[in-house]
């Protein structure tokens, strides 16, 4: 590449990088994912108080009719093939909105049911995605769970 081409390339990239970052701002305002490529994770703040902190957790519950048998598990237990770093984003994208969950196709439901059956060892017909906010208290012996509050529950019938 000659000098002029290299200079032009640098100018284009110097313009492009802030532009794509502006898009991150717009996309990120409405939706946490997906991000444009040329950014590193920002990690928004987590709520930490003087004497404790709160953490949001997602639980997947699968159960048979009339809750004869049920099993609670973490998303990483339900999707062990997905790297841990991708689990929260995957759950947020596909399982945090009731409307989106209800639109999962029959194929998708059948796939989830097969997976739930494999993991639980029984044949569940319903799956719940439960969002919890857990409040921890700092003590001399470490952090102690004070309270867990259910903040959202989405039901998916297989």
């Amino acid at each position: 590449m000659n000098r002029k081409a290299v200079r032009t390339l640098f100018i284009c990239i110097l313009i492009y990088l802030p532009l794509q970052y502006a898009v991150v701002g717009i996309v990120g305002y409405y939706d946490a994912e997906p991000w444009p490529a040329f950014v590193f994770p920002g990690f928004k703040s987590v709520h930490v108080y003087d004497d404790g902190f709160e953490i949001k957790r997602t639980v997947i519950d699968v159960e048979t009719m009339h809750r004869q048998r049920s099993l609670d598990m973490s998303p990483q237990d339900f999707f062990p093939e997905i790297p841990l770093s991708q689990i929260p984003g995957f759950v947020r994208t596909h399982f945090s909105d009731d409307e989106a969950v209800q639109q999962i196709s029959n194929d998708g439901r059948a796939w989830l049911q097969r997976r739930a059956t494999e993991i639980s060892g029984f044949s569940p017909n319903t799956m719940y995605i439960i969002e919890l906010t857990e409040y921890y208290r700092q003590t001399e012996d470490g952090a102690v769970l004070d309270m867990a509050m259910e903040t959202n529950r989405i039901r998916l019938q297989f």
């Binding site: 640098f10 990239i13 110097l14 990088l17 970052y21 991150v24 990120g28 040329f38 950014v39 590193f40 994770p41 920002g42 990690f43 928004k44 703040s45």
Partner: peptide
Amino acid sequence: LFVAFMMFTAGFPKILG
């Protein structure tokens, strides 16, 4: 340039956050 800009994008939302 890419690394520096990407590092900046990691720091900036932290200020806002």
